[in-house]
Design a protein around this nucleic acid. Structure first.
Lengths: 346, 346
DNA sequence: TATTTTCGTGCAATCGATTGTATTTTGTTA
DNA sequence: TAACAAAATACAATCGATTGCACGAAAATA
């Protein structure tokens, strides 16, 4: 298994007795090469199975046509779908998407970004980890002049574009939906408010209560990580403390799943005794024994738009204008069984 | 936002009035450079915030320290976990893992592989798509002399190593477990046997029936794609055709989920009327209202081993020996409620 | 036919780091 | 102190493609 010899433009130039410069120009369809030579070069390139060495090209041009995407977890459908959206937009333009995961760990995130910068990507898309407070590693991207786009989970850094969804409105709609279904003692199991998304969901929840003249009871509000186990623990916590509640608005589908499981094991009836709404519309929510009401976020669209923002940005890179673009998408509530006390509204 | 000027070894060499060659050797800790110069260079490199240009290095050395992983879907926990295993082994050694998805589409797969080869990765890990029959694009990897490792879903190509699990034994154990629970009319909803994994699961199912003197009823055997929807349709199909069955061994957790949902909506009781076993131990299986019995595959370990095989292979690359290594892992049955007619065995 | 313009090509530098082969400097020994 | 070995450093080619500049030949113009 000998390493196959790579064919270079020099091999072509030797074979045709012309200079490598001409071969390069011919391959790039320069109008400074005669049609005859062009055809000859193209044919020879094909015959020899010439493959352009992208490393050499990247070294010379400074562009690699690779972009990096950093997400907390690749196996969350939400993030996987955003990535899909980015791929759909960028692959037709010749870009290759390098996917990295931070595992919700800021050190990992910094490492991944460093590795990406080191391989000279043309841009970075990032949804920051929960533990990301120090943002030196993110500012470093901007400082190197590498286009940077936040999606879903952002940090406020001037000059950096972002594509997010309106978590506030999503949470507001979810909470108001519960209220309209007749629930009044609505608990909120949210996430760390250091992440804007969780802060906004919390705000939306509070606003919906206030608009509907329901007093906010702090004991019904918990902050947990977004895992099934945390959802189980959260319900145990509420029950142990004898906190009254007849509904839960969770900022995560996984937490909602855990909550449902724990409630069920204690013989609470869903949605009769307790109504539940999650967030993200993970695929499993639809197929649960009792399908989960949840807020859907159009992640593919989010990825597509993020990619478009990136493409605009590299266009403008030469002109020394700096444009910061903030796109906010509207979420949609999927009303399913876990919250329909009164029966389907459709 | 000016592009930060990159610091090169030439900048260091100019500043210290020495040649770039010496700087390079100093940075690489060559013993042909005096300790004094070394220290000077290292200090200056730090002061100027020198970052090695990996593109130049890759161009010269032919190694990029990037490896590619191609999977059908990144959001399947199984694949995500394998990737995690690969990362765990390879990142400490300075490698960067580039993740790609084929979306179960052979053309996509070929495109991704081409893109990877084009960016000069040092190796490729792949779990082939369901639609992969023509394997020219995979043979091309081997022919270019790029180390290639199959995991989970493999094709038989001589000289290519693989890490798989023993699907036969997993299926055998799952089926025999159902038999021991008293089920006799066990249906099998499998996948396309063109994929070895599904063929082996089918074989294990058949073998378990035969060993236990249960006649194989072809009408109880279906082939579907591994989605929830396909599981729903499969059960509908069985019922429409009035096929008798008191258990289902599914080659996919997603299909099992769909099957459960459809059975439940028709008022079948699980596990009393119908026992169910899935395959993969996807995280949601544990948290279903009725937790799903399933076959677990140690995917993180699979990734780790695949990475180790890769590391061995690049070591041996220089010596012109060609070693093909086939590692087969043993799966484990997780007995949960959907199959425990007689109650827990523990 | 002489002069200018256009066209097609080649030369050589460049991107940044590595490395075999000089060459210089230092140190050792007679 | 001359002669030589050893150590430290410099030179220059290399990886593969691109591109500004120069040059010669052909074509257009006077």
């Amino acid at each position: 298994m000998r390493q196959k010899e790579k064919v270079t433009i020099y091999d072509i130039s030797k074979k045709l007795n012309i200079s490598a410069a001409t071969v390069s120009r011919a391959l790039n369809n320069s109008n400074r090469v005669s049609l005859k030579t062009k055809e000859l070069v193209l044919k020879t390139a094909k015959d020899l199975n010439y493959q352009q060495n992208t490393l050499a090209l990247a070294l010379k041009s400074g562009r690699t046509f690779n972009v990096g995407v950093v997400v907390p977890y690749i196996n969350h459908t939400f993030f996987a779908s955003v990535i899909r959206g980015i791929e759909e937009e960028l692959e037709p333009k010749g870009y290759h998407v390098i996917i990295c995961q931070s595992h919700e760990n800021v050190e990992n995130e910094a490492k991944q970004i460093k590795a990406l910068l080191n391989t000279h990507i043309d841009g970075i898309f990032i949804s920051v980890s929960k533990t990301t407070e120090d943002i030196k590693h993110i500012e470093a991207v901007r400082d190197e002049g590498v286009p940077l786009i936040f999606f879903d989970r952002k940090k406020d850094i001037s000059g950096v574009s972002s594509v997010t969804i309106n978590d506030y409105e999503g949470a507001f709609a979810a909470t108001e939906h519960l209220i309209k279904q007749g629930y009044t003692k609505i608990a909120h199991i949210g996430g760390d408010p250091k992440l804007q998304i969780y802060k906004h969901r919390y705000d939306g929840y509070i606003a919906a209560l206030k608009v509907n003249n329901i007093t906010v009871d702090e004991s019904r509000i918990l902050e947990v990580s977004s895992t099934v186990e945390a959802g189980i623990a959260a319900v145990q916590d509420l029950l142990n403390k004898k906190t009254e509640f007849d509904a839960i608005f969770s900022a995560s589908d996984y937490v909602a799943l855990g909550a449902m499981r724990e409630l069920r094991s204690r013989d609470f009836k869903i949605p009769q005794d307790v109504g539940i709404v999650g967030f993200s519309n993970e695929p499993f929510t639809k197929y649960l024994e009792r399908p989960l009401t949840t807020v859907g976020q159009t992640p593919v669209l989010m990825g597509q738009i993020a990619a478009q923002v990136f493409l605009e940005q590299i266009k403008e890179k030469n002109k020394s204008v700096q444009v910061e673009k903030r796109v906010v998408l509207m979420p949609e509530l999927y009303e399913r069984e876990t919250s329909l006390k009164k029966g389907s509204t459709h």
